[in-house]
């Protein structure tokens, strides 16, 4: 294999690998921008992978799986919004509770539906959709424009979120809610609605991130299919400074490390593979040391807003 082909293959893999990171991190970012900090990504991705896979398998179409994954992600997001925004319970406690519940439900649903089998049930994986004209370009065409729809979706979504947040009135309101909900509320912005909508949509994006894994990689559901990508997406969100465009850039890094770790395993470099599997997490810690200092976090992140609570001044 010549060097050029190696590079093309590597970058192609990075493009395919960054999808779940981007979707889950943008979902995290969206909720966080109104102050709701989800820590249930890992669980939502698991349950969406499981339910999405089952829907696609039984109903016989990937689209059903995608819709089911969004539905289930949205429901978990709705629960998170309800417990935190309406009942004003601690976001981390609720987020962790939802993680455990959804993670448990994911394997339960699979086992109830499929049972234990020697040969795993399979769904077709997502086909590549080369973009007209663009995919004919030398090098660039192969790397960027011959992918499944989720890859395009992840990129386009990031750009759309950027425009929404920074170029529209609704984006301004949304960011204001995450910085100072009292200020937003005092100008007639519906804080509760904003928090619900972003948390539910954020949950849907996490659901998409989850269902991508069986649809793009394995063709089936396994209990360890998410492998910490949900947790890493939280790190990616901080790494990207809670900005959609930087999150997209950061995802190249996270995906790059994952591909490297995977390649190193395959090529047998003589290091036990468990160490290689640690690589993404170690890299995360290393980049987050300066990253956390740099990141500007929404001021109201992780807190709940109660209009009538008297300020302790």
């Amino acid at each position: 294999m010549d060097a050029q082909l190696q590079v093309i293959t590597f970058l192609r893999l990075v493009m395919i690998t960054l999808v779940p990171y981007v979707l889950a991190a943008q979902g995290t970012m969206l909720g966080g921008r109104t102050g709701v900090f989800s820590v249930a990504q890992e669980g939502i991705m698991l349950v969406a992978a499981s339910v999405g896979f089952l829907a696609a398998y039984y109903l016989g179409g990937l689209l059903y799986g995608v819709l089911a994954a969004m539905l289930v992600g949205g429901i978990v997001g709705l629960l998170l919004a309800y417990f935190t925004t309406t009942l004003k319970m601690d976001q981390f406690v609720i987020g962790l509770a939802l993680f455990f519940a959804t993670a448990g439900f994911s394997s339960l649903a699979y086992k109830v539906a499929i049972g234990v089998t020697l040969i795993p049930p399979l769904i077709p994986t997502l086909p590549d959709v080369p973009l007209p004209v663009l995919s004919q370009l030398p090098l660039v065409g192969d790397i960027f424009f011959r992918h499944n729809v989720f890859v395009y979706l992840a990129i386009v979504l990031s750009l759309v979120l950027y425009v929404l947040l920074y170029r529209t009135g609704i984006g301004l309101e949304l960011r204001a809610v995450g910085e100072s909900p009292l200020a937003a509320d005092s100008l007639g912005v519906n804080v509760t609605l904003m928090r619900y909508v972003t948390t539910v949509v954020g949950g849907m994006l996490m659901g998409l991130a989850g269902v991508y894994l069986p649809m793009a990689y394995t063709g089936t559901f396994t209990e360890d299919i998410v492998r910490g990508r949900g947790w890493l997406s939280i790190a990616l969100t901080f790494f990207g400074g809670w900005n959609p465009h930087f999150i997209l850039l950061g995802a190249f890094f996270f995906a790059g490390v994952e591909v490297l770790a995977f390649r190193a395993q395959v090529t047998n470099v003589g290091i036990p593979y468990q160490f290689l599997l640690m690589l993404p997490y170690l890299a995360t810690i290393l980049v987050m040391i300066p990253g956390f200092r740099w990141a500007r976090v929404p001021a109201f992140l992780g807190r709940n807003y109660d209009r009538e609570k008297r300020a302790q001044v």
Partner: peptide, 12 residues
């Protein structure tokens, strides 16, 4: 800060 909440939803 001043125009918050008065801008058209998708206006730029």
């Amino acid at each position: 800060n001043i125009a918050l909440g008065t801008l058209p939803r998708l206006g730029g």
